[in-house]
Amino acid sequence: MHFVVCAKQIPDPETPPSAFKIDPQKNEVIPAQGIAPVLSQFDSIAAEAALRLKEAAGDSKITVISMGAESAQAAIKQVLAMGADEGLLLNDPAFTKGDPHTTAKVLTAAVQKLGDVDAVFCGRQAADWDWGQTGLLMAEGLGWPSAIIAKGVALDGQQLSVERVLEDGYETAQAPLPAVVTVSNEFGEPRYPKLQQIMQAARKTVTTWTAADLGLDAAEVGEAGSRLRLEKLFIPEKEGKVELMEGDTATEKAQALVKALQGAKVL
């Protein structure tokens, strides 16, 4: 079996809101000083799902793919350290400022070029732009079935069985390979690589493919090929006028709160 994990490097979502800044002219997030970008958490869980399938299936290979800048090598290396076999960076100036449509187009072209892929694993959404579209757009582009927002994955021969999270419960969906799966946090914690694995991953060579390598024209990727245009990026105003309850004891503070809520006709 050959599994692909799609990995995205993003600004650390744990960045304190006070350090979160945007450039309103360029409609871009300004990287917070001293806070390194990270692998999107949902993608590390997608890697965990692929690794568990690889361990169960035996004789399998995992390729981790990231579309991004040269710095995205760090995200690739992290998944390699977790146990993926090969790394592939899709890097081209033409890929920047795209939308889900163009991102999926580039990733789909890479999966097609690899040729022998049995399943693609993505995070349910990336924790920066929170679209939740890439996996589904890839499934459409590849013509494969998909199962999104997975909390469990099992393989029985060529049949994939995916436990999915719904708003009000769970369902088990079955689809034949090849297929696309997007994985949610309910799947569980991803593994932490050991130091030795991190050192081995650091020595691995990551292949880079450009738009030309993928047979893609600059006009159909990145900003030029996008179906959506970002008109405005802004930080919403917060009220920031909290009224803190005064009192010497817990009871006094609690009574002050009840009084305040009654006064505001909330209680």
Binding site: P11, P13, P17, F20, I22, N27, V29, A127, D128, W129, D130, S226, R227, L228, R229, L230, E231, K232, L233, F234, I235, P236
Partner: peptide
């Protein structure tokens, strides 16, 4: 034009459609 929450709610983004 559609406005949505991005970066886990730290920012808002307004989009228009090319197509």
């Amino acid at each position: 034009k559609a406005t949505r929450s991005v970066y886990g709610g730290n920012a808002m983004a307004t989009y228009s459609f090319v197509t």
